[in-house]
């Protein structure tokens, strides 16, 4: 009897979890459906400065919403993707891009994984040769 109760309870919880996920997902879609795909594509590469480490596409902060609207307007005005990135970088710096551009500050960030890969493969190769 007790076991049965427990399993019913857990099924209920599972059900609630699934349902809440669906409702949340739908809410997100309705909020973004006024934006074109191109806007969303650009928005995915722009960092939300209010809630850092999230793209403005995912974010619902006021600034993220405004930036998405702005991107949409700039696209309608005939600006291309690069011009929009330049516009934002002139105002917010490279920091606004989720993917940092390659420059002297970030060169190690980009190449350290490859250096580690090369060194470790040399080591592993030597290790197995022995």
């Amino acid at each position: 009897m007790k076991k049965q109760f427990c399993s019913i309870l857990s099924i209920c919880f599972l059900y609630i979890t699934i349902i809440s996920n669906i409702t949340l997902a739908e809410e997100k879609n309705t909020q973004l459906n006024f934006l074109t795909n191109k806007t969303r594509e650009i928005a995915q590469n722009i960092k939300c400065l209010v809630c850092q480490n999230q793209s403005i596409d995912e974010s619902n902060s006021e600034l993220a919403k405004d930036l998405k609207k702005l991107i949409e307007e700039k696209l309608n005005d005939g600006l291309d993707e690069d011009e929009i990135y330049t516009f934002l970088r002139e105002r917010y710096g490279d920091y606004i891009l989720l993917k940092p551009p390659l420059n002297t500050n970030t060169i190690l960030l980009w190449f350290l994984p490859f250096i580690i890969l090369v060194f470790s493969s040399i080591y592993i190769f030597k290790f197995f040769k022995k």
């Binding site: 006021e62 600034l63 105002r91």
Partner: peptide, 13 residues
């Protein structure tokens, strides 16, 4: 009122 001037100034909050 629209928040556009803030964007021109690079204001993020």
């Amino acid at each position: 009122s629209s928040g556009k001037i803030a964007i021109e100034w690079g204001v993020y909050g």
